[in-house]
Structures are given as C-alpha cells and as structure tokens.
Amino acid sequence: MSLELPSPISAYVEANARLDVDGMMRPFAADAVVLDDGGRFEGHAEIRGMLEHAAAAYKAVFTPDTFRHEQGQVVVEGPAHGDFKGSPIRFTYRFDLDGDVIKALEITA
C-alpha cells in the first residue's frame, strides 16, 4: 500500500528505508524534539545520536501502513523490522509539523 504522507514525513520514511541517517535528519527543524523509548532528544545533535543508535545500529526500518490526522498531529502506524528483540514491532509515530519541517516526534510501541 502506498500512503500519501506529508512531504517531511515521506522524506523521513524513505531515508529510513535506506538507513540513511543524513536523509532522516533533513526534515527536522533545528530545534526539533523527539521522544523515544523514555528518552527526550532535542536539536539535531541529540536526534542524530538517537537515530544512529536506534535506526542504523539495529537496522530498524519503519514501514507505515496507516496514517491519520489527530489533534493537530499526523499519526503514522506500522511495523518496524530490524536486528532487535521482538522484531517486527508495531510502532506509532506522532508528528508535529510546521510547514515542511518536523518540529516534534513521539515514538511509541
């Protein structure tokens, strides 16, 4: 199934499929915040470190299969496959967008 995701989310997902951390970083605002696995990551340096650990090290690829708009956010759901215990795991990504950039992302399983 092909989803018509907003462009910054689509860019993030497409880069993640290639495990391209630079590409995953491009749609994030300089002051973006990511909440993942109990951690809070602010700004490009912290987010890059989290992505290098979570996505690249574990070869974690998120494959969205549904999305919706909810309370001003874009909520994207789907499985992530990779070299981690329990793979695949279904995740929910909650994106806050500001035009063509990601301002905030919360990832939950």
Rank of each mutant, 00 (worst) to 15 (best):
G43M: 06
G39Q: 14
F41L: 05
H44K: 00
A15E: 13
V34G: 05
D31C: 02
L35W: 15
D31Y: 02
D37Y: 13
V21Q: 03
E46K: 15
D20Y: 12
G39W: 07
H44L: 00
D22C: 10
A32V: 09
A45R: 02
A17S: 14
V21T: 04
L35N: 12
M25F: 08
R48S: 05
G43P: 15
D36I: 01
F28L: 04
G39E: 11
D31S: 06
G38T: 04
A32W: 13
L19V: 10
L35V: 06
D31L: 03
E42W: 07
G23M: 00
A30V: 09
A15Y: 14
N16K: 03
L19D: 10
P27V: 10
E42Y: 08
G43R: 03
H44C: 01
D20P: 10
P27R: 07
G43V: 08
E46N: 15
G39K: 14
G38F: 05
R26H: 13
A17D: 09
M24A: 03
G23R: 00
A45Y: 00
G39N: 09
I47K: 06
V33Q: 10
N16T: 08
E46W: 05
M24R: 00
R26I: 11
A15F: 12
V33C: 12
A45C: 00
G23S: 00
R40A: 07
G38Q: 02
I47W: 06
V21G: 02
F28D: 03
A29I: 05
M24E: 08
R18E: 15
L19Q: 11
R18K: 11
D31T: 03
R40V: 14
D36Y: 02
H44I: 00
V21Y: 02
F28H: 05
P27T: 11
P27E: 09
N16S: 12
A45F: 04
R26W: 10
V34S: 04
D22T: 12
A17V: 02
I47Q: 13
N16M: 14
D36R: 01
L19F: 08
A29W: 10
V33P: 07
I47F: 09
D20C: 07
M24G: 02
M25S: 07
R26P: 02
R40M: 05
G49E: 11
V34A: 11
D22I: 01
A17L: 06
I47D: 07
E42N: 13
M24T: 01
L35R: 15
R18V: 10
R40L: 10
L35G: 03
D20H: 04
R48I: 05
P27I: 09
